[in-house]
Amino acid sequence: MTDHVLVLRLAASMQSWGVRAAFPEYRDSTDHPTRSGVLGLLACALGHPRGAEPGELAQLDLVVRIDKPGTPMEDFHTIGGQSTTEVVPSADGGRRRGAVLTRRAYLADAAFTVILTGPIALLHKASDALDRPTYTPFLGRRACPPAAPYNLGIHPGGASTALATTPLDRNAPAGTTTVTVDTVTTVAHDDPAATHALNDNPHGRRRFSQRTLARSALTLPADLCLGNDAGERYERLHNYRYSQTD
């Protein structure tokens, strides 16, 4: 039986993938999509309530290909503080008096290919929901909607095939026929290939456990790169989804 995968293109002018469960003054972002963030995107599309446990989505694993790493950026937020008596709602359901000051990290102009593996029926259910989402999907924060198209459909051949065939959302490098990108995969905690760990396995209501990851380089043909022409980019992504989908 051939393995199938669901391929997502997560690109936007701004996105953010935090790995802290609390809301400190500094809101971080890692440099690639997190498991909790991607499952949250799917949960929005499926209509799951905020804070719900992942349920059947916990069966999915993901591989991330960093097509374009983007540029780290920060902004500064002030919430409330107009009067000495004002209180501001907090993420834990309580309220805080006075102004809430935060700095928030983002990735600007980044693009990722995310390959989801799991039961084929669940992949189809997730893909259908992404085409007709209950709630608007976002890339880590509600202010970061994904660029279209973000659902590249279900494809046969497994994660390795998708990594090697999905169009690369970047310009082709000058003077070479290949391009090298990083990939991030889930591995066992004692795997010698492991390079880092993230606290991004969601369990509902801002509870997370650690996931061990391996980051490695992948060299691909430069003609996979989409380039800058908007019409050509959309046509190639459309053709990839519908001419190769099983």
Results as ranks from 00 to 15, higher is better:
L107W: 05
V87C: 00
G98S: 04
R35C: 01
P69G: 10
C44I: 02
G47N: 00
L62T: 00
V38D: 05
Q82G: 07
L46P: 01
L57D: 04
M73K: 04
T78I: 15
G80Q: 06
P54H: 09
G81K: 04
R97S: 07
E56L: 13
G94Q: 07
A43V: 03
H32R: 15
E53N: 07
A45W: 03
Q82T: 14
P49T: 10
G51K: 12
E53F: 02
L107A: 03
P72V: 11
D61Y: 00
L46W: 04
L46C: 01
Q82M: 12
V63F: 01
L39T: 12
G93I: 11
L46Q: 09
E53S: 14
R27L: 14
D31K: 05
D67K: 04
R104D: 02
Y106R: 09
A108I: 04
D67Q: 03
D109K: 09
G93W: 03
A43S: 07
L46I: 06
L39C: 08
T84A: 13
R97V: 00
P54V: 10
C44F: 05
R95K: 13
G55H: 09
D67M: 04
V100S: 06
R104F: 05
D61H: 14
E74A: 05
R35H: 09
G37E: 06
E53W: 01
T30V: 15
D61C: 13
R65V: 13
P49L: 09
S90W: 00
Y106F: 15
R65Y: 11
L39V: 10
R27V: 14
V38G: 03
A105Q: 14
A45Q: 08
V88C: 06
P54D: 07
V64R: 02
A45S: 11
A108H: 13
E53D: 12
P69I: 12
L41E: 00
A105R: 14
L60K: 12
G81N: 04
L60M: 10
K68A: 14
R97A: 09
L60E: 08
T34A: 03
L46N: 05
R95N: 07
A99W: 01
T30F: 10
C44R: 08
R96K: 15
T71I: 14
A105N: 08
L60Q: 09
I66E: 11
E53M: 13
P49E: 06
Q82I: 06
I79L: 12
G40S: 09
A99C: 01
G47S: 05
R96T: 12
P54G: 02
I66W: 04
R104N: 11
D28Y: 06
T34G: 00
V64H: 02
A105L: 09
Q59G: 02
D61V: 14
L42P: 02
E56M: 12
V100R: 09
P54I: 11
T85N: 07
L41R: 02
I79W: 05
D109H: 12
S36D: 03
P72M: 05
